[in-house]
Computed example of a mutant assay.
Amino acid sequence: MKDSLRNKVVVITGASSGIGRSIALESAGRGATVILIARRKERLDEIAAEAKELSGAKAYVFPTDMGKPEDIEKTFDEITKQVKHIDFLVNCAGFGKFEEFVEQKMQDIINMFQVNVLGLMYFTRLIGRVMMEQKTGQIVNFGSIAGKVPTTKSAAYSASKAAVIQFSNVLRLELKPFGVKVMTVNPGPVYTNFFNVADKTGNYVKNVQEFMLDPDDVAWQVVHFFGSDKRELNLPLSLAVLAKLYNLFPTIGDKLSLEFASRK
C-alpha cells in the first residue's frame, strides 16, 4: 500500500484535526500529494510537514473557512493553479452542537448548515466540475449515523447530516455518466475535538464509550475504499445495523432511541 496513491492528488477539508488529519496522513503514507484545507494555518503547516515526511511528495496548505463562499472560491482558484488534476475530494469539515432544539440559538443552526451542508455542496460543485472534465475522480462526503438514527438534542446537527447523505445519493447518480464516483461515510461517535464543541458537559462521550471510534481506524477504512464503487460506509458495525433496523421498525426505534441512545 505504500505507493498505492503515488501521483494521486487528495483534497481534504477539515484537515487540521480529527478524521481529516488522519485521512491526510493515511493518504500521504500511501504516496499521495495532499491538499489540506481548514481554518487554522499553523495546524495545517504542522500536518503538511508530517505528510511530506511520509510521502516524499508535495503537501499544500490553504487556510479556508468552509462557511464562507468567498473563501471557498479563492481556495479553489489557488488549487487549480497548483495541480493539474484532482483524484479525490474528502469533505470532512463540519461541527455540531447538542442542545434541545427549541432552546438552540438560530445563528448556531445557520452556522451549522452553512459549514456542514452549503459549504460542502459549493466546494463539491467546483471540484466536481473538474472531475467531470477529467472523466475520473471520487468524492467522499462525511455524513453521520446521526443523519440516519434520531437522538435527542441533535435535531439541527442530524438534519444537516441527513442533508449531506441525500445530497450524496443524488450526486452519485448525476456524476456516474462522467466516471466520477461518490461515497458517503457515516461514522458514529469518534474520539476527536468535535465533542469539545458539541458536548461541553462531557456526558455524551462518557455514555457512548462502547461505540467510540479511533480517527486513525476510520481514516484507514476510508482510504482503503478510494477508487472503489462502494456507495456508503457506516461505522461501527453495531450502529450500522441499528440504522438498518430503525428503517425497518421506526416505532420501536424511537422507543429504543429514547431509552438507550439519547444519552446527551
Rank of each mutant, 00 (worst) to 15 (best):
S4F: 05
K74P: 04
G18D: 05
M106S: 12
A28M: 05
F98S: 05
K58R: 10
S4R: 11
D65Q: 01
Q209M: 13
I127W: 02
S228Y: 09
A261W: 13
I252R: 07
V185P: 06
V222S: 00
L213R: 10
S262T: 07
N169F: 11
I35S: 05
F95L: 11
F98N: 09
V205M: 11
F113R: 02
I23S: 02
P150Q: 13
R21I: 09
S16R: 01
P69D: 13
F260D: 08
D45E: 12
M183F: 07
A38G: 06
A59D: 07
E26H: 04
V180W: 04
S144V: 06
K68Y: 05
I72K: 01
E259R: 14
F226E: 04
A49L: 05
F226L: 10
E42F: 04
F142K: 01
Y157K: 05
N7Y: 14
L233Y: 07
A93H: 02
T151E: 11
L239D: 03
L54N: 02
P63G: 01
F113E: 06
R231N: 13
I110S: 08
L120S: 05
A59P: 07
V130D: 07
T80M: 11
F178Q: 05
I127C: 04
I145M: 07
I12K: 02
E174D: 15
N186W: 00
K74E: 10
I37G: 02
F142S: 02
V10K: 00
V223I: 10
A32E: 01
V223E: 03
K255W: 13
N203Q: 14
N116F: 06
R6K: 14
K148N: 04
M131E: 05
V117P: 03
I165G: 02
A48S: 07
F195T: 09
Y60A: 07
Q114N: 15
S17K: 03
L173E: 15
P63S: 04
L235G: 06
K58L: 11
D254I: 14
R231C: 12
I145T: 03
I12T: 00
R39G: 00
A163D: 08
W220P: 10
H85D: 14
K52A: 03
F178S: 10
R21V: 05
L175G: 08
M121H: 10
G31Y: 02
L258T: 14
L89W: 02
S22V: 04
A155P: 13
I165W: 09
I47R: 00
